[in-house]
């Protein structure tokens, strides 16, 4: 199965819609609740990152009985130093994003903690792509 969702930068009203849809789908498929939570935490953090930092983005989800793969590609400022961005507490979020309860430099580390694999590629001035996979049959991260 595969699904695609569009994300609009700055649209905090609809941020989380894709994550919500994926959560409902995984529940219907009978996936273990611990794994569902890891998937949606990764996806939601990444979705909010697009809303918070990028101009627009696309989420592609593919899954089979073994694995769910989530690719989030955005058009935006990109990340200059990915190692720095992965450090807890580092953030370039605007005051507006912080007022929404995000932008504390916890998103990427939290994704990394919940994903089985995480790959980040970015071109400053162009955009960022996150590739996240989670094994649907092993609860441990």
């Amino acid at each position: 199965m595969s699904f695609e969702y569009k994300v609009t930068g700055g649209d905090f009203t609809h941020a989380g819609y894709a994550s919500s849809q994926v959560k409902k789908m995984l529940k219907q498929l009978g996936v273990d609740s611990t794994i569902i939570k890891r998937v949606v935490v990764c996806l939601y953090e990444a979705e909010v990152n697009i809303v918070a930092h990028a101009y627009s983005g696309t989420i592609n989800i593919t899954l089979d009985s073994e694995i769910i793969a989530m690719t989030l590609a955005d058009s935006g400022p990109g990340i200059t130093d990915i190692d720095l961005a992965m450090q807890k507490g580092y953030s370039t979020a605007s005051p507006e994003v912080r007022e929404m309860g995000f932008g504390a430099g916890m998103g990427l580390p939290n994704i990394n903690a919940n994903a089985d694999t995480l790959a980040i590629t970015s071109e400053p001035g162009t955009g960022t792509t996150l590739e996240i996979t989670i094994n649907l049959n092993s609860p441990a991260a």
Partner: peptide, 9 residues
């Protein structure tokens, strides 16, 4: 709204 979404996740 994101408070509700966060609780959902």
């Amino acid at each position: 709204v994101q408070t509700i979404r966060t609780a959902e996740m």
